[in-house]
Design a protein around this nucleic acid. Structure first.
Length: 193
DNA sequence: TATACGATCACCT
DNA sequence: GGTGATCGTATAC
């Protein structure tokens, strides 16, 4: 199965966020494949984007976003959750796509063990899918395009036309995010979800 | 050193 | 639809 290569991620972030819908996210855990199709993404683009973690410049936490495309940016939030982003564009420009949800396809039993929850809520949130796939802070900065990586993306070749993509404002932005960033429709999901 | 808050989730009603 | 959990970061002092 063909992997998504670095040139896929070295493109405008909004394009990558759209094109990631329907692709397969694969985690190899203890030799077993855990996988799902990406169903929701969100773009965070540059220091000018007041909702982006890089809005205040480079810090130790967000350093991965300033690195090369195709690497992971994994951050910890709310004292208990990890979220997975994939770095886009070019080095020194901080941008990434947050993976917000996947539809599980492989390794369901292990995902259920990792999350003691009903299947319907196994991976339908950014911190839920990292828990189900066993992704934590040690994945921050990992190269998802490297041979032998235990977290990577596989290209899905679709038959026929893709369903229209619904673009919405990003989820969970607080009052501190000003316009126009607060209302930018940079959250993407397929209309058949 | 201290403090406020967050790209969330789960549970309750 | 509302709220508590829970702690790493950033920012201010």
């Amino acid at each position: 199965m063909a992997r998504l290569r670095r040139n896929f991620f070295a493109r405008p972030t909004l394009q990558v966020a759209r094109d990631l819908l329907g692709q397969r996210l694969v985690r190899v855990l203890n030799g077993q494949r855990l996988a799902g199709l990406i169903t929701e993404t969100e773009a965070y683009i540059g220091e000018d984007d007041r909702a982006c973690h890089a809005r205040a410049g480079r810090t130790r936490r967000n350093a991965s976003m300033y690195g090369p495309p195709g690497h992971a940016y994994v951050y910890f939030t709310y004292g208990m959750h990890f979220c997975l982003n994939i770095v886009t564009e070019h080095p020194d420009f901080p941008a990434a796509v947050l993976i917000r949800a996947i539809a599980p396809t492989e390794g369901l039993e292990t995902m259920r063990q990792n999350r003691d929850r009903p299947d319907a809520v196994l991976t339908n949130g950014p911190a839920k899918l990292t828990q189900a796939l066993g992704i934590n802070g040690t994945f921050d900065g990992r190269d998802l395009c490297a041979p032998g990586a235990d977290l990577f993306l596989e290209a899905i070749t679709r038959r026929g036309a893709r369903p229209p993509i619904i673009a919405s404002p990003r989820v969970g932005l607080g009052q501190s995010v000003p316009e126009p960033w607060k209302s930018q429709a940079w959250n993407f999901r397929a209309s058949n979800q």
